[in-house]
Design a protein around this nucleic acid. Structure first.
Lengths: 227, 227
DNA sequence: TTGACTTCGTGTAACATTTACACCACAGAA
DNA sequence: TTCTGTGGTGTAAATGTTACACGAAGTCAA
């Protein structure tokens, strides 16, 4: 079946920059393209937007189809509309970024090969995906400092040191331990658990979890998270 | 001539939220629609993206066609992709916001009637344009506090009081005169001119202009404007 | 010319926030 | 028991933010 319009139309896609954290390095999930163009090159997961789904729905669907990821933190990033960004025809892409907790990616799926890369050591990317990724990284850095989204990259239970490592990896600079803990705890958004995290021949660390309910309450009162 | 595709495609538009400042109130430029749907209702200026122009180009072109505005500050805002946001068919709109200096709008153009409305007293808007406008306002408020874009809404030469009125109008709260001046001047981005601004039976005010060159230099060094 | 009126332009002290920094606690391994 | 390695904590100095009031410099009218 064919669809005919009076004027030429751009194709519309979504692309997702999926961030993950392995405890030390910020990572991005890439897909090896099975088809032309840019066959066998690495690219962001993504695909065409269907005419009966919203952009958010399209991003979630593609993410699940290509990486198996579900129920992740997902937010629109920017829309890339360069005229020649796809060699085949005009394609406008609405880019999203996603934050996923460790150990959720099923590894390879269906046809596509999915793999994590450290943001500091990326392969050559298809299309203008390097631009998209750079934009996403910039956004993540900015956002991390004034919204409590870092928890989306950690397991549900985490230690303050893990959280600090994450901030250091994203921001690219070391942070003072005592000041970091003071600031994070001052927001009163972390709930200390009864459990400890044991991880080697040393004192075990207190585990915390993020309190999303309290955060929503505070947010409505015009509260500003900052770190 | 017709264009045929294998799958149905959404139409792609740009819409612009144009902000202006009249010295006391933040305003938005709206167009009265000449055509169905929403005929005779107020709407954001905008229109279809051509297949051979970038999104930015489309936004600038539509802005000029519908309001006569050229060379304004323009930045992408968000892409709205609700499935039913246009009653005719699927239309995805990339929204932009623009900041214009006073006295640039030529008034009505061609077919369309263009008019400024205070953001605090808006008419009913076509489509989901009220959502778009709310998003733009939120973004403007946020951005004003950490990037020196306020100057885009003032004439090239302005007084500190004018600048303060602008910040107060956008942020919706009064600011302390001495602290405001201290902070603004501390960034060293305003150049005092030899001229004074005379505006009534009282002491004339020092005029300043923004120094974009210095700003670019500072920005590259990782400088953060804040107010 | 004088005085009334209006906005312009300025400094400081109290307070709050941010920074820099070092040592004991607690666990496992040898 | 000692060694090793991370976890957890407080304080003083410096910096930044807030609150606040009055003389200066013009116009206008009497």
């Amino acid at each position: 079946m064919n669809y005919t319009y009076q004027y030429p139309r751009a194709a519309l896609t979504v692309d997702c920059v999926v961030f993950g954290f392995d405890g030390g390095t910020l990572q991005v999930l890439l897909i090896r393209r099975a088809l032309e163009p840019f066959r066998n090159q690495w690219a962001l997961p993504g695909g065409f937007v269907r005419v009966d789904e919203t952009l958010d729905e399209a991003a979630r669907r593609e993410l699940e189809e290509e990486t198996g990821l579900k129920k992740v933190f997902l937010e629109q990033l920017y829309t890339f509309g360069g005229v020649t960004r796809d060699p085949r025809e005009r394609v406008v892409s609405v880019a999203y970024y996603a934050l996923v907790k460790p150990g959720l990616v099923t590894g390879d799926t269906d046809a596509a090969e999915a793999k994590w890369f450290p943001v500091s050591d990326l392969p050559v990317l298809a299309f203008d995906h390097a631009d998209i990724l750079a934009t996403a990284l910039e956004r993540l850095r900015g956002k991390l400092s004034y919204q409590p989204i870092g928890f989306e990259l950690l397991p549900p239970k985490f230690t303050l040191t893990q959280l600090q490592r994450l901030y250091e990896a994203v921001l690219g600079e070391p942070l003072d331990k005592r000041n970091f803990r003071k600031k994070v705890l001052s927001h009163d958004l972390l709930i200390p658990l009864q459990e400890k995290h044991q991880d080697g021949p040393h004192r075990p660390a207190q585990l915390f979890r993020f309190d999303p309910v309290k955060y929503e309450r505070l947010k409505k009162k015009g509260f500003l998270f900052e770190i």
